[in-house]
């Protein structure tokens, strides 16, 4: 059975609406799927409302960009309670934090660098579910503050003072567990953006996050080479962790094919994925 537990809708930075995404999941013949928008639950609510008899099994999900003194992490939460408990509140505060950061950035740019945008453009930005640096870069190009998005990043955005408020990995993990879900480390080899972790560095990270309650690793991932995948599967065995499979599909924003997780029918190392599914689908 095809499984894809990592994808984004336009509620975060994908390009498909939840309804479009569901249609594509059906078409791709995926049997079990999860929607994992950044800091957002809206998409999952929409999917739950759209599901019909005979549809693929759905697991509510979310992805949190976290950081602490030691690095950046993407933490996935699966099978949590979408209506009550800790998760809805945590997701709202994550979203608010993102909005605060955006505001702080824009204010700094305006006061210190003289870069300001028309009110309408600013409002547009805040109306997005998940606005971030790429969206500011786009505006900078549109209003002539940079010639390219790249230039916007290199010359301005990467040099803005780092905001001290961010989600720490233990906060995300604790909230997911409190909300009845299972916390999983997304694409472990690629921390966030440019990070590449392997070997001892990887292992230390896993052990530290396990201390906070991490329970699984996304070992099957569209962006992994067989070598990276095997390394993560090795850690799952060593530390008795669940394994998940996800594509990180973003619609037209990235060239990722829905359902492409690097997990094919010939794969025999699926025991830890199966026990994960049993866990989240019974409890979720």
């Amino acid at each position: 059975m095809k499984i894809d537990l990592h994808m984004h809708s336009l509620v975060s930075d994908g390009t498909d609406s939840p309804a479009e995404l569901l249609a594509k999941v059906r078409e791709a013949g995926i049997g079990i799927f999860s929607l994992t928008d950044h800091d957002a639950i809206k998409g999952c609510m929409a999917i739950i409302g759209l599901l019909q008899e005979g549809d693929p099994a759905f697991i509510p999900g979310a992805e949190f960009s976290c950081r602490d003194e030691l690095g950046k992490y993407h933490i996935l939460g699966y099978g949590y309670n979408v209506r009550t408990g800790a998760m809805p509140g945590f997701i709202e505060s994550s979203h608010n934090l993102r909005m605060q950061k955006l505001e702080a950035r824009l204010d700094y740019m305006e006061s210190e660098l003289g870069i300001s945008f028309p009110v309408q453009a600013r409002e547009e930005l805040f109306s997005l579910d998940n606005p971030g640096k790429p969206h500011i870069a786009k505006l900078m190009v549109r209003y002539g503050f940079a010639q390219s998005k790249e230039q916007a990043f290199y010359e301005i955005l990467n040099h803005l003072p780092v905001l001290t408020s961010y989600i720490r990995p233990e906060q995300a993990i604790e909230a997911i567990i409190a909300g009845g879900g299972v916390p999983v480390l997304a694409h472990p080899s690629y921390g966030d953006g440019d990070q590449l972790l392997m070997g001892e560095e990887m292992e230390q990270r896993i052990r530290r996050l396990m201390g906070f309650g991490l329970r699984g690793l996304e070992a099957f991932y569209s962006g992994f080479t067989p070598q990276l995948r095997d390394e993560i599967l090795g850690y799952a065995d060593r530390y008795d962790l669940y394994v998940t499979a996800g594509s990180d599909y973003h619609g037209r924003n990235k060239m990722i094919v829905l359902g492409d997780t690097g997990l094919d029918e010939t794969e025999t190392r699926t025991e830890r994925l199966e026990s994960f599914l049993k866990d989240v689908m019974h409890e979720g």
């Binding site: 440019d194 962006g223 990235k254």
Partner: peptide, 15 residues
């Protein structure tokens, strides 16, 4: 090339 770049190459390779 960072991991973000590596991922782009892997995606191109799919096509």
């Amino acid at each position: 090339i960072s991991s973000a770049g590596l991922r782009v190459l892997l995606r191109i390779r799919k096509t």
